[in-house]
């Protein structure tokens, strides 16, 4: 049985690519408009579209239940803004985040912001197993700065920026695997296998 992956639809942006990419990687993804359905899901993806406050407005009503699910170890993946909302606060918004990842989201300090384009990710984690060239697509002005030991990969951009996170079974990526061509597909295949093994 392919793992059923709930993709949270916050009402803005393109979910075609992530849905199709997960399908290609052997999962059975479905789009969830009513956020309460996330609480029943066997695997959750928080896609990388939209802005912090708008996204949190949608998730705020189910916040405590959702965090409980993540703490219980439901396999999940937050992409870009979808990873940032896992943190406690963000300099981008006024709304509090989910607070599942301890730490805050801060503005990039760099000569050019947004950090836009393809950059490499350093990690020992098995989620990048088999990725030939570790270049992934980034498009962000803020990044998560954890205050606990959950950063498992980083990227050089005017200093070292944490770009890959793991806590319990929730991965967070500052990059967009669904926009990262072959490397991204490999990452997502590894994630789907990880989710299958966890459910």
């Amino acid at each position: 049985m392919p793992v059923r992956v709930a993709i949270a639809d916050y009402g803005v942006g393109n979910l075609h690519s992530i849905r199709k990419a997960l399908e290609n990687c052997g999962a059975s993804p479905y789009i969830v408009e009513d956020m309460r359905e996330l609480l029943e899901a066997e695997c959750v993806v928080f896609p990388g579209v939209g802005a912090f406050d708008k996204t949190m407005e949608r998730l705020q009503p189910i916040k405590s239940g959702l965090v409980r699910r993540l703490e219980e170890g439901v396999p999940s993946l937050g992409i870009c803004i979808g990873a940032q909302i896992l943190f406690e606060t963000s300099e981008e918004g006024r709304q509090p985040g989910l607070g599942f990842y301890r730490g805050k989201v801060v503005r990039l300090k760099a000569e050019r912001v947004p950090h836009m384009g393809w950059n490499s990710v350093r990690t020992d984690d098995l989620i990048l197993r088999g990725v030939g060239s570790p270049y992934f697509y980034f498009a962000h002005s803020y990044y998560g700065l954890p205050s606990e030991d959950i950063a498992i990969g980083d990227t050089d951009y005017y200093g070292q920026v944490p770009t890959l996170f793991l806590k319990n079974r929730t991965y967070g990526t500052q990059f967009h695997p669904e926009k990262s061509s072959e490397s991204g597909m490999r990452f997502l295949r590894n994630f789907v296998k990880f989710a299958e093994a966890s459910t």
Partner: peptide
């Protein structure tokens, strides 16, 4: 755009 997005995995 819709049919492109379903099979394009770069931005």
């Amino acid at each position: 755009v819709e049919s492109t997005a379903e099979r394009l995995f770069v931005p």
